[in-house]
Each structure stands twice: as structure tokens, then as C-alpha cells.
């Protein structure tokens, strides 16, 4: 009984466990697994990351004006879907040039709006990919 009163009294002066969010920013872990980032110049277009990705969030699709890179013989362009990605970094482990061509950042993906056409544009890319295979 007394101990519970004492506990209740000391609890009054404890700092809260939560943070004052808009005033205090959320601490971002340095090692957090976040979005995958891509370095176009270093990529050798081996497509290992595309094969390794479990949900299929990386697609190399042929386009009319491919990015300039001498290794890119088929005229492919890298596409990445942050909303499909599960951040497992299988692609980075599969990449022959990690840290230069493909690496994992600690950024979080932003929410998408209807105008971004996240799903429709991705389905179009998947269709294109199927046609070229």
C-alpha cells in the first residue's frame, strides 16, 4: 500500500517514455535498413539484383533513350519500386560492385499519393518486361 503510494509519487517526476514529436525529431538509426540506392555509372548491367530480389522490386526495362553506359548493350533502364521493396538487401549482396552500383541507405520511403500512379506505372513496366523476355 505505502510502496504503491511512494511509487505513484515518484512517477510524477519521471520523464515520459515518449518524445515530443514535432518539436524533437525522431532519431534515425544509422544502420536502419532503408531504401535501396543505385549508381548508374558503376552499374555493369549483369541483372543479378533483378534475379535476386524476392518481391521483384527491381526491373531493368528497355527504353528508347537508355542511360549512357558502355556496359549497357541492350538499352536497359533501372527501375526501383520502394513500395514493393522489403529492404532485405538481397540485391546488394548479389551485386558484384556493392557500394558503387547498389547500396542500402537508411532513408525511409515517403507515402505515395494517387497522382504518383504507383501501381499503374509499375504494372506497365512489368508488362513491358514480360514482352521482352
Amino acid at each position: 500500500m505505502f510502496s504503491s503510494f511512494a511509487k505513484a509519487f515518484t512517477n510524477l517526476f519521471k520523464t515520459p517514455q515518449t518524445i515530443d514529436y514535432p518539436l524533437t525529431p525522431i532519431e534515425q538509426e544509422k544502420e536502419h535498413r532503408g531504401l535501396i540506392e543505385y549508381g548508374q555509372e558503376a552499374c555493369i548491367y549483369c541483372l543479378k539484383c533483378e534475379k535476386a530480389c524476392p518481391p521483384g522490386a527491381i526491373l531493368f526495362v528497355p527504353v528508347e533513350n537508355p542511360p549512357e553506359n558502355e556496359k549497357n548493350k541492350k538499352g536497359l533502364k533501372y527501375h526501383y519500386n520502394p513500395y514493393l521493396c522489403i529492404y532485405c538487401s538481397e540485391c546488394v549482396r548479389a551485386c558484384p560492385k556493392p557500394d558503387e552500383a547498389l547500396w542500402q541507405s537508411n532513408k525511409k520511403s515517403l507515402p505515395a499519393t494517387k497522382e504518383d500512379r504507383v501501381n499503374e506505372s509499375w504494372f506497365e513496366l512489368e508488362r513491358l518486361k514480360k514482352q521482352t523476355d
Binding site: E29, E31, H32, R33, I86, Y87, C88, S89
Partner: peptide
Amino acid sequence: LLTGNRVQFD
């Protein structure tokens, strides 16, 4: 800290 994520460790 250990895995990079709170719930889905992968």
C-alpha cells in the same frame, strides 16, 4: 540495432 529493423528482421 542488430538487424536494421524492429519487426521484420530479415
